[in-house]
Design a protein around this nucleic acid. Sequence first.
DNA 1: AATTATAGTGGACAAAGTCCACTATAATGC
DNA 2: GCATTATAGTGGACTTTGTCCACTATAATT
Lengths: 144, 144
Amino acid sequence: MFNQTEISSIRNFNRDYTKLLGILNKKVLGTPLSWTEGRVILEISFNHDKTPIEVANSLNLDKSYTSRIIKRFEKNELLTKSPSATDSRSVQLHLTSKGLALVKELDERSDQQIKDLLGNLSDLEQKKFYQAMSTIDTLLFNRK
Amino acid sequence: MFNQTEISSIRNFNRDYTKLLGILNKKVLGTPLSWTEGRVILEISFNHDKTPIEVANSLNLDKSYTSRIIKRFEKNELLTKSPSATDSRSVQLHLTSKGLALVKELDERSDQQIKDLLGNLSDLEQKKFYQAMSTIDTLLFNRK
DNA sequence: AATTATAGTGGACAAAGTCCACTATAATGC
DNA sequence: GCATTATAGTGGACTTTGTCCACTATAATT
């Protein structure tokens, strides 16, 4: 098991990474969306026909809060709702072309951020970064 | 430079790691402190005699917001202020024994969280995790 | 000495998030 | 099939968190 120095290093890393991601995430700015709104619209874009409750669960958000965000999106014509085929309590969410365009913009900005952040690294360093990240990804999140 | 698949993987990782850290960070619960309050008291504990403005700058917080948090800490007897020797506009912050005890508790909880999170990994996996994390740490934050 | 910058504070406000109650429907146990 | 319990979605009311601005006191600059 890790010793105290290692634990401290890990916590240190987590703090710094939190801070870094916090800074990156705040810059969803330039779009009219808050960070959480950005997460919500991205989540909806990942696989179509998601329901509000699925969104709320995936992102650990309060369902009432999520409901209001979605309502706002609907009002701003970023998405539409349609009745669920299988559960009439529920609705399915569909991004409009306006919503998709916004997602595209968000994606492009986020991609660019990553490039800016890591662009100064040499090719070898980038390779090392990517491998290290993949290692952690596999160990923590079981992605293959 | 990274290709699109790699960029996507990196963003994916960042999302998942954000979520993970978000979950971990929320659990400062069990103590009477919010996440930001936790960051503030830890920051003060790192090196004594910090001033409010230094805390605010390190954590990217609004100075007025920071001032209020510190005021709350003072009221709850977690810290005391003393006039700065070198700048009479400013004050130096000192944790009381109560404040130190709370920091200790926070530290122990955080350490335990890391152990819980990574405890299921085998020794080899833990070693790989630690090396990968250290690699990213060096590449992103220039720590040696 | 005059000007400009900075530390700290508080008022007023805005944004983000939580909690509760309610309706409508589904699922479960009998 | 009927009663009970659980779940999806919504809104009201509220708390927490964070922002913006203005002000005082002191420092630094010219």
